[in-house]
Simulated scan of single mutants.
Amino acid sequence: METKRIKHTAFFNLKYPVDSPETERFLQDGKEILSDIPVVNQFEVLRQVSPKSEYDFGFSMEFNSQADYDAYNSHQSHQEFVENRGKVEVVKFQEIDCLTLDQ
């Protein structure tokens, strides 16, 4: 049986101007903190370019299994980043999590 990966994406707008030092710091801190969690693979910081989307930025990452995804969600570093930074600095948020259908 083939193991499917989970692709986790979080798209968001910050309370700061898009090109501000505060935005750069949030994105860099997110990358450092979240990509350091052992179960996280292929971490990317994304900048939206489509006029069809209402979000400015995104974080994308992959997990090898549901257990890894669950471990990420309950990991202390993730929980602290969400509480101390996400809930304070993010004004709009959309999370999309997909199981890969690679054949």
Rank of each mutant, 00 (worst) to 15 (best):
Q76R: 12
S65G: 07
T3K: 14
Q42Y: 15
N84T: 08
M61W: 03
P51C: 09
D19L: 09
Q66C: 04
K87V: 04
M61V: 09
F43P: 06
L34W: 03
F63C: 00
Y72P: 01
V91F: 05
E22K: 05
V49F: 15
F11C: 12
E54N: 11
V90E: 00
V40T: 01
Q79T: 09
Y55E: 05
Q48M: 11
E54M: 09
F43N: 03
F26W: 05
G30V: 04
V88L: 08
K92D: 13
S50I: 03
A71V: 00
E62S: 12
V45D: 06
L34D: 00
V45K: 03
N84W: 02
Y55R: 05
G30S: 08
P38M: 03
A10Y: 04
Y69N: 01
D56I: 05
K87N: 11
V40C: 00
Y16P: 02
L46K: 06
D56F: 08
F59M: 06
R5E: 09
S74M: 10
N41S: 12
R85E: 11
F59Y: 12
E44Y: 14
V82E: 12
E89H: 14
H75F: 06
D70I: 01
C98M: 15
T23I: 07
K4V: 09
K31I: 10
H78G: 03
E54R: 12
H78F: 06
E32N: 14
V91N: 11
D29V: 15
N73A: 13
F26K: 01
F12Y: 14
F59D: 00
E44R: 15
I33Y: 01
N41G: 01
L46T: 09
V40P: 00
R85G: 02
D68C: 01
D36T: 06
D68L: 00
I6P: 01
R5D: 10
K87L: 11
E83S: 13
Q94G: 06
G86M: 09
M61Q: 13
D36Y: 06
L46D: 05
E24V: 10
Q79M: 13
Q66L: 12
I96K: 07
Y69I: 00
I96W: 08
I96Q: 10
E80V: 10
D29G: 08
A10M: 14
S35E: 12
S65W: 07
D97P: 01
F93S: 10
I6K: 10
I33T: 14
T23V: 05
D102Y: 07
P21A: 06
Q103A: 10
Q42H: 15
F11K: 06
E24I: 06
M1S: 12
Q48W: 02
D56H: 09
I6M: 06
I37G: 02
S20N: 08
H78P: 04
K31R: 14
I6Q: 06
D56R: 05
D68N: 01
T3Y: 08
E83V: 03
Q79C: 12
V18F: 03
K31D: 12
E83N: 07
F11A: 08
K52G: 09
H78N: 07
R5F: 14
A71L: 05
L99A: 11
D70L: 11
P38S: 02
Y69P: 01
H8D: 02
Y55V: 05
P17W: 04
D56A: 11
